[in-house]
Design a protein around this nucleic acid. Structure first.
Lengths: 96, 96
DNA sequence: TAAACTAGTTTATAAAATAAACCAAACAAT
DNA sequence: ATTGTTTGGTTTATTTTATAAACTAGTTTA
């Protein structure tokens, strides 16, 4: 079919992540875990996917001796998200 | 994660089908094929799924000696669609 | 120093999406 | 009347995705 919806965004968890990152600008792994209620494994996989296509940036450092993963949305991610919103709005006959 | 989006609707083709059926009330296989630009096989499978959960009703008759498949949305389908719209609107911070 | 916890990643499995192959009946040409 | 072609689909096989379970590497606590 004539695919309009970016398949990378058309997934509930990835959509939630990007939505959060867009409103917050950046967030750490634990926060995303809590907010999305995803499993750690699933969250990790989906973050990696979003990073691989350049929608987000992941910075790994240490905080209190523990690994600390921070995520930040990239311009490409914002663009893709906005496009997704437009397309699904059309599909569902929503006004933005 | 805390799943909010009905997985049966969170699929582009099924979403398109339901969106069309809601605005048109009913449509035949060929029309849906044309509008969605899906393959026949995919359309057939997704229509069957939507029927199996009671979101749409499928009526098979004959027209000019050929099989003729008509689809119509059911109340349950309308309800599910509306719920989906609400949930994804929240997720994406859209106003309906 | 062993157990338990933190903060993740990797991988195995199940589920889903999709296209390719198929089918039965109708029509068309030979 | 037989062969080929088209219509209007369905079924099935394959690939892709999503997800949870298992694992890793290091830290803290007892």
């Amino acid at each position: 079919m004539a695919k309009k919806l970016d398949p990378l965004l058309h997934n509930e968890l990835r959509l939630s992540i990007l939505s959060l990152l867009i409103s917050l600008e950046h967030a750490d792994f634990g926060y995303l875990l809590e907010k999305t209620e995803a499993s750690k494994g699933n969250l990790s996989v989906q973050l990696t996917k979003l990073k691989e296509v350049g929608y987000i940036e992941i910075t790994k450092t240490f905080k209190n001796n523990y690994p600390y993963t921070e995520c930040k949305v990239c311009p490409k991610g914002i663009e893709a998200f906005e496009k997704y919103v437009n397309e699904i709005s059309k599909l569902l006959n929503l006004k933005k």
